[in-house]
Design a protein around this nucleic acid. Structure first.
Length: 152
DNA sequence: GCCAACGTTGGC
DNA sequence: GCCAACGTTGGC
């Protein structure tokens, strides 16, 4: 089992939206590295930190878990979708995704400055300068540390 | 709103 | 295959 982190802008799709929906299809990822993690490495049941990017401050808002095997992102075939990819066909799809299910919402977000200030999180991909990957692996130690921070 | 970091595209 | 131009992400 591996641990993960996914990013979403809270005003686009937040942990509260996931709590309401129960589970969701993580569509629209159009970065090959992020796709590869979902397609090749994620397993149902893997725990996932849910990060709100672009907040003031940004921070980790809760926990989800991988809730499906990978499958083709249907939005790539839909000309009406923002995520339509004209170079992608059902016979040769480019983009795969997984579903995520709600696990918990933290009482308060763990803010990015707190993560940055924590020496035990050194090396976390999220904290790397210039890191933009929206789906990324997290070590179990880092995952547990974020949970500990969330529980104060 | 600014800008650094990064990924992708396309000309050559 | 190189690399400049461009678009996007995301913190500040």
């Amino acid at each position: 089992m591996r641990c993960w982190l996914i990013k979403s802008e809270a005003d686009v799709y937040s942990i509260d939206d996931l709590a309401r929906d129960g589970r969701t299809m993580w569509d629209g990822v159009r970065n090959y590295q992020a796709r590869n993690w979902m397609r090749d490495e994620m397993k149902p049941g893997d725990p996932v930190l849910f990060y709100h990017s672009n907040g003031d401050p940004p921070g980790v808002a809760g926990v989800a878990r991988v809730a499906s095997a990978p499958y083709d992102d249907p939005t790539q075939f839909d000309p009406a979708s923002l995520y339509h990819d004209p170079k992608s066909t059902p016979a040769a799809p480019r983009w795969q995704l997984v579903d995520f299910a709600f696990v918990e919402r933290f009482p308060a977000e763990v803010p990015l400055p707190l993560l940055k200030a924590d020496p035990s999180l050194d090396g976390m991909e999220l904290l790397r300068k210039g890191s933009r990957l929206s789906v990324q692996p997290v070590t179990e130690a880092h995952f547990q540390r974020v949970l500990a921070l969330a529980r104060g």
